[in-house]
Nucleic acid binder design. Structure first.
Length: 409
RNA sequence: CGGGGCGUCGUAUACCGGCAGUACGCAUGGUUUGGGACCAUGUAGACUGGGUUCAAUUCCCAGCGCCCCGACCA
């Protein structure tokens, strides 16, 4: 991608916000705020989000099947489960009298999809032979947060992967629940958060009187506090940490959560299957979420320095920032063009800064954007190129072939 | 939802009851070219409504919006 034809504009003088991710993502031109808690994913930001979601999708495909449910749903579904009182629930309706006359209904902008997925499953999966099964989606969710804050970490409109599993009994649900834990662990490892993400015991919240598990990434910008039992190493959400134990406390951000719903929703919708003896039995369900936009925010919170973002390679918008200097020199421009083509041909994702601006402006953009490698072509580099990683201070001059090998590796 | 703050070119900010300024960006020209270049010339702005006043961007009220602290957080 050539910078000159990419829809990208950095603004290093943009306002500082309460959180690092809000500030850096806006300075880097990854996101643009539309209103409080609502952001546009600009092209370079979307590249990151797509990579995160691709990883999530790959891991989810090992334990479930992707589908896509609507963002809008009828209020009646939420009345069935008595969840119309959720305080963050958003409603949509005709914006003016004319459209209200045409359609009197009000709709819910879904914050989660148990109300949608349960009746869908009920329509076709009603024999014990059908179980277990699981479906997931990656989709935009809505929550009318009282106070949106911290950039992508608490928005009113955000992206979420939600997975729903269906089982004949509790044992089977719990077996699957453990599989989800493994898949989630793999996801957080792959996006670079493995080390600091703790499986944390939490209350079941609105869903169940039992337990649930949260995936909490230790992070100063986080809104939760997790307590790690110094003896057992087990992490608890502060809200349920038992008295009389010693804990290591950390601020953390909830990047994923998993709930054994048991029969809460199947009961509300009277979703039963026919067992081996021809008797109807309530279905056991689980639900499992990962906020993909929040994940993006947390990654910025974890990986940055005073110059900008440092994206982990697995989710970086590009692998390499190719800075073509000396744009007034035809030979150097031609050489940079050739290297750009060579990198692309090798399957390397490259952002080619072909603008006629000062070298320092390019370097600072490269740092701000957080692209893992920087390659420089200039009068000084001759037949070679200069390469350095985002975190290295020193550059090295190497042959083009060697450079490509390094970037591929 | 309680409390506080703020709404001025695209962005960041300043001043002022009497012609709204600076910087960045953007445009054009010239000089530059390894850590955010320089010079020149341009470009573009007072959230909305009401009130006070000879005169309001400025003061007052309301609405809307945004930010921050706290509460909340399936």
């Amino acid at each position: 991608m050539r910078y000159s034809s990419f829809f990208l504009h950095t603004n290093k003088d943009a306002k500082e916000f309460d959180s690092i991710n809000a500030t850096l993502l806006q300075k880097g031109g990854f996101i643009d705020q539309t209103m409080s808690g609502v952001y546009t994913m600009l092209p370079i930001g979307l590249r990151v989000l797509n990579k995160i979601e691709a990883i999530v999708r790959e891991e989810m495909d090992t334990i479930g099947t992707e589908m896509l449910m609507p963002a809008l749903s009828p209020r009646s579904l939420w009345e069935t489960t008595k969840r119309t009182e959720i305080d963050v629930l958003l409603e949509a309706r005709g914006a003016n009298d004319a459209s209200r006359k045409r359609n009197d209904a009000s709709y819910i902008l879904n914050c989660t999809h148990e109300e949608l997925v349960t009746p869908i499953a009920q329509k076709s999966k009603s024999s014990y032979k059908d179980f277990p099964f699981a479906v997931y989606q990656i989709q935009t969710k809505f929550r009318n947060e009282e106070r949106a804050k911290s950039g992508l970490m608490r928005g009113r409109e955000f992206r979420m992967k939600d997975l729903y599993s269906f089982h004949k009994d509790e044992d089977d649900l719990l077996t699957y629940y453990e599989q989800v834990k493994k898949a989630y662990t793999t996801i957080f490892e792959r996006v670079g958060l493995g080390e600091d993400t703790k499986i944390t015991l939490a209350s079941g919240g609105d869903f169940t009187t039992g337990f649930s598990h949260e995936f909490q990434t230790i992070c100063d910008a986080g809104e939760d506090i997790i307590c790690i039992d110094t003896e057992t190493g087990i992490a608890y959400n502060e809200e349920i940490a038992p008295e009389g134990k010693t804990y290591e406390k950390h601020k953390a951000s909830e990047v994923g959560n998993i709930f054994p719903l048991n029969i809460k929703f199947s009961n509300a919708f009277n979703y039963t299957y026919m067992d081996e003896n021809g008797k109807p039995q309530l279905v056991y369900m689980g639900s499992y979420g990962i906020g993909t936009t929040r994940l993006m925010g947390v990654i910025v919170e974890k990986f940055h320095d005073d110059k900008g973002i440092i994206w982990p390679k697995s989710i970086a918008p590009f692998t390499v920032y190719l800075a073509g200097l000396n744009r007034d020199d035809e030979d150097t421009v031609r050489k940079a063009d050739e290297i750009y083509t060579a990198l692309k041909t090798s399957g390397i994702e490259v952002l080619y800064d072909d603008r006629d601006i000062a070298p320092g402006a390019k370097f600072s953009d490269a740092d701000l954007l957080g692209i893992p490698y920087r390659v420089v072509v200039s009068k000084k580099t001759g037949d070679q190129v200069e390469v350095k990683s985002r975190t290295e201070a020193e550059t090295s001059l190497v042959d083009i072939a060697a450079c490509i090998e390094r970037l591929k590796g």
